[in-house]
Amino acid sequence: MNTKKISDVEAFKRESDKARNIPLSQEDIKRINDLAREVEKEESENNEDDFSIVAKNKIDTESSHIQG
């Protein structure tokens, strides 16, 4: 080998520990919470759609019973 490289295991651990201790910034928190609200909004809209389909089916069924 042309160049001998010797490890620095303490520096390795020190650097690695930094990766697990990054604090969340206010921007991070806002970004994730905004995305979370979008999910809730989309889910509640889908639920409303589901309700209206159920309600429509129920009305259709009832009216077919009356007609029958």
Binding site: D8, E15, K18, A19
Partner: peptide, 23 residues
């Protein structure tokens, strides 16, 4: 968003930390 928050930078740091081992 969660993956970017919890993985991107930390994994980059982990990868760079490997350099200290001079592997």
């Amino acid at each position: 968003g969660l993956c970017e928050l919890y993985l991107k930078k930390p994994l980059e740091i982990e990868f760079l930390a490997l350099e200290k081992l001079k592997i």
